[in-house]
């Protein structure tokens, strides 16, 4: 049975899944932690919860009868989308860059980034069109060495092809941009672009000392675990298939006892 918390909660019993108004209100972090057993039980009682959690944890809780205040919903989404140390680093970078640039940077916004590079930093535009930055491999080198050991016969492979490789249909994700890789010197572009993406920003790394923190912040800004908006979530809640990896989630099982201490 759900237990009423001493503060920050509404009704004592979660409502049946997706039926009726939310029965448990969570408005404080303390209540969120204090009611976790009740919340977990509510999630466990709804067979749809696994996919709903993968789609949007805040809306998933609402769907199983837990109403969250906007602040708590925002807290949950942030906690799910990025670890605390990453959020902390983001804040640290944003503060430092704001101080240096005089404006909030938001480097994941291409238009904003163009203004910063060519306005605030007075950099010359570079001819980045058609150039590919260097990315960190998704599989670490150590793992790649182990994987190569599984390949039987390197002598059987052809030498490197002279024909150009077909462009990949899907570029590597931005968070794998490698800030430590050597950057080729590019000629200046004739025109100043109105938008600069993070892969394009990578080529400006040698151009100014603030480009590196800008790139790091931009990467962290986009390196979040996005959640589905309400309409797409509703489709998942109602048993629809997204055709994507949300469909992959079969179950989400919370431990009966906490595997880690509750935060203070």
């Amino acid at each position: 049975m759900a237990k009423r918390s001493d503060s920050g909660t509404g009704k004592s019993r979660p409502a049946p899944p997706a039926a009726g108004p939310p029965a448990l209100k969570i408005t404080t972090h303390r209540a969120l932690v204090g009611e976790r057993t009740t919340i977990i039980a509510a999630l466990a009682a709804d067979p749809r919860s696994a996919r709903m959690l993968a789609a949007n944890p805040a809306l998933a809780l609402r769907a199983v009868g837990v109403q969250l205040s906007p602040a708590i919903a925002d807290h949950i989404l942030h906690a799910v989308q990025q670890p605390a140390e990453v959020r902390s680093r983001r804040a640290e970078l944003a503060a430092a860059l704001t101080k240096d640039l005089g404006v909030a940077p938001h480097p994941s916004d291409p238009a904003r980034l163009a203004e910063i590079l060519f306005g605030a930093l007075h950099l010359h535009p570079l001819a980045t069109a058609g150039r590919q930055p260097t990315y960190v491999p998704t599989i670490p080198e150590a793992s790649q060495d182990r994987l190569r050991a599984l390949l039987p016969n390197p002598d059987r492979r052809l030498p490197a092809r002279t024909a150009p490789t077909a462009p990949s249909t899907r570029p590597p994700p931005v968070w794998r941009l490698d800030p430590g890789a050597p950057v080729p010197a590019l000629p200046r572009a004739r025109f100043r672009p109105k938008r600069v993406t993070l892969p394009e920003l990578w080529f400006y790394l040698p151009s100014h000392e603030l480009v590196r923190p800008l790139l790091e912040l931009g990467i962290l800004e986009v390196s979040v675990m996005p959640v589905l908006p309400p309409d797409a979530f509703a489709k998942v809640r109602d048993g629809g298939q997204t055709g994507g990896l949300t469909d992959w989630i079969q179950s989400v099982t919370f431990p009966r006892g906490s595997r880690k201490a509750a935060p203070p």
Binding site: R36, A79, Q250, S251, R259, K260
Partner: peptide
């Protein structure tokens, strides 16, 4: 953060 770590099973 701040929450019991769930086990997520997936297939696709």
């Amino acid at each position: 953060d701040c929450w019991p770590d769930p086990d997520v099973s997936f297939s696709g």
